[in-house]
Structures are given as structure tokens and as C-alpha cells.
């Protein structure tokens, strides 16, 4: 249960949260992924959703993107209830949001250039020379203009993510959802990605949602953080406010302590009993 239910939005439209989640409940098999979760994603900011592995962070992004349907609760994006939209409206909405997948999810049969051009060619009727200009602009923004003719298999992990980022901004979306953008990257690449996410967010007036368990990197750019564990929002607030949190769990997670409220051990019989010593 969220500590405090966010206030009902009122005031001028551009201060409404872009995404509001209310009472979200979702199971996967017998496992509870979300239990009555509320959260807001503010316009123009970078909101981070953090939690241990397996907390359902990626699932949340898929719910926001309309690839999964909640069992209960509402998810609204820019005033539209995602899971009540027909396929046509959902696709219209998706044109205005992008998702950066953990693997980059570049189309392996297309070059970097064609990957970035893909959404433009699918959704616009722009002439080829204009598409070329746009693609080169996007690639320049992520520093891969020189790599346009490479195939995805020739890219390093960090480059693949940057290329995917260029593709994600191709249609100038209002929001980008990042799924674990830092996992498995070397420190330099991480630094590059952190800077890119922040710069793109501010320069393009985007709203960004980052799902991650890389605490330090995420906290360094997030404007607001939600901590999720066991299907509940454990705490939320600005990074420095969370830093001062009195919660032992938050303390453990943010400082990566090996043991604490979240046990090091997977639930098991008492050790001695398991070894038949009793």
C-alpha cells in the first residue's frame, strides 16, 4: 500500500501527472506482482521506479504501455485509460510514447540507420531525404552518426542501447520508458547513458520513467523515486528525501546492505532441521 495516496490532480492541465496509477493489482500465477499500487509520473521530470530484482518493475512498464492488462485498478496516460482503449487508440497513444528495452531490441535484420528510420517510415510519409536528415539528427544526439551503416550485431551493448535510444526519440515522443537502462554496462557507458537520458529529457521536454535497480546511477538523475517491493510501494519521494528516510528497508536498499528487512536467505526450513541435526 502506498504510504500516501497522491492528491487528486487539480490545477492547469500541464501540471497533471502524465501517468496516474490507482489501485493497480496484478498477479503472475500465484505470485503477487502488484497489490493495490498507486503512483504518479510527473510531466517533464525523470521518475525512477526502483526495487529488487523480480519486483515487477518491467511488468509495470508493460502495463503502462498497454501490453499487459491490470486485474484491478486504473492506469491513465495523458488522460486516457490505457487498458480501456481499443487497439487503434492504443496504437495512437503508443506513437507518443517510446520504450527502451533492456536489450535494446534493435531489429537485427536492419542497419542502425534503418532501425532509427523504422518508426518514421512506418508512421509518416516523409520523403526519403527528410527521413535521412531526421535520422542523422537523432543519431548525432546519441553520438552514433558514424555508426549508421553498422548492423546491430556489430554494436557493443552500450552502443546498441544508444542506437535504440535514437530510435525511441525518432517520433519525438512525450514520454520514454526505460527498462533497466544501466544493467550490465561498464562505468563509462553508464556515465554516457546517464548524461544522455538527462539531456534528452530536458532538451526535448520529455517525461522519463526509469525502471532500475542500479541505485546510485538512478538516484543521480531521478527527480522522484518510487521504491517497490513485494507488490507494494514501500516509499517514495525525491532522492535526498529518501536518503534521510527512517525506514530500515529503504536504508538497506539504497545502501546495498547484504542483510536487513529483506533477508539474505530465501525462505527455508531452519538450517539445523534441514541438515537433520535436530
Amino acid at each position: 500500500m502506498s504510504a500516501t495516496a497522491p492528491a487528486v490532480p487539480n490545477g492547469p492541465p500541464d501540471t497533471y501527472p502524465l501517468v496516474t496509477v490507482r489501485g493497480l493489482t496484478f498477479h503472475r500465477g500465484d505470485r503477487v506482482i502488484f497489490q493495490n499500487v498507486d503512483l504518479d509520473i510527473r510531466r517533464g521530470g525523470i521518475t525512477a521506479i526502483m526495487g529488487p530484482s523480480g519486483a515487477g518493475k518491467t511488468t509495470l512498464l508493460r502495463l503502462i504501455g498497454g501490453q499487459l492488462r491490470p486485474e484491478a485498478g486504473r492506469i491513465e496516460v495523458d488522460g486516457a485509460c490505457v487498458h480501456e482503449l481499443g487497439r487503434r487508440e492504443l496504437y495512437q497513444l503508443r506513437k507518443r510514447m517510446s520504450m527502451l528495452f533492456q536489450s535494446g531490441a534493435l531489429f537485427t535484420d536492419l542497419s542502425v540507420f534503418d532501425n532509427v528510420a523504422f518508426p518514421l517510415r512506418e508512421h509518416t510519409r516523409l520523403p526519403e531525404n527528410l527521413i535521412r536528415t531526421l535520422v542523422l539528427m537523432k543519431l548525432e544526439a546519441v553520438g552514433l552518426r558514424g555508426a549508421r551503416d553498422l548492423m546491430p550485431s556489430e554494436l557493443s551493448g552500450g552502443m546498441a542501447r544508444r542506437a535504440a535510444l535514437a530510435r525511441a526519440i525518432a517520433l519525438d515522443p512525450m514520454m520514454i520508458l526505460y527498462d533497466e537502462p544501466f544493467s550490465g554496462q561498464d562505468p563509462i557507458t553508464m556515465g554516457v547513458l546517464i548524461k544522455l537520458i538527462r539531456t534528452l529529457n530536458d532538451a526535448l521536454g520529455l517525461t522519463s520513467v526509469i525502471v532500475s535497480h542500479d541505485v546510485k546511477e538512478t538516484a543521480s538523475i531521478a527527480d522522484y523515486i518510487y521504491l517497490i517491493s513485494d507488490g507494494l510501494v514501500v516509499d517514495h519521494g525525491a532522492p535526498d528525501a529518501l536518503e534521510r528516510s527512517s525506514s530500515a528497508w529503504v536504508e538497506q536498499f539504497l545502501h546495498a546492505l547484504p542483510d536487513g528487512p529483506m533477508s539474505f536467505h530465501y525462505p527455508a526450513l531452519p538450517y539445523a532441521q534441514d541438515l537433520s541435526l535436530e
Binding site: R62, G65, Q67, Y91, Q92, R94, K95, M97, S98, M99, F101, Q102, S103, A105, L106, F107, T108, F118, P119, E122, H123, A164
Partner: peptide
């Protein structure tokens, strides 16, 4: 995730 990415690109 190429198929999922495609769906997310509408």
C-alpha cells in the same frame, strides 16, 4: 523483445 518493441512503436 523485437516484437514487443515493435508493438510499443505502434
Amino acid at each position: 523483445e523485437q516484437l514487443a518493441a515493435m508493438q510499443m512503436m505502434a
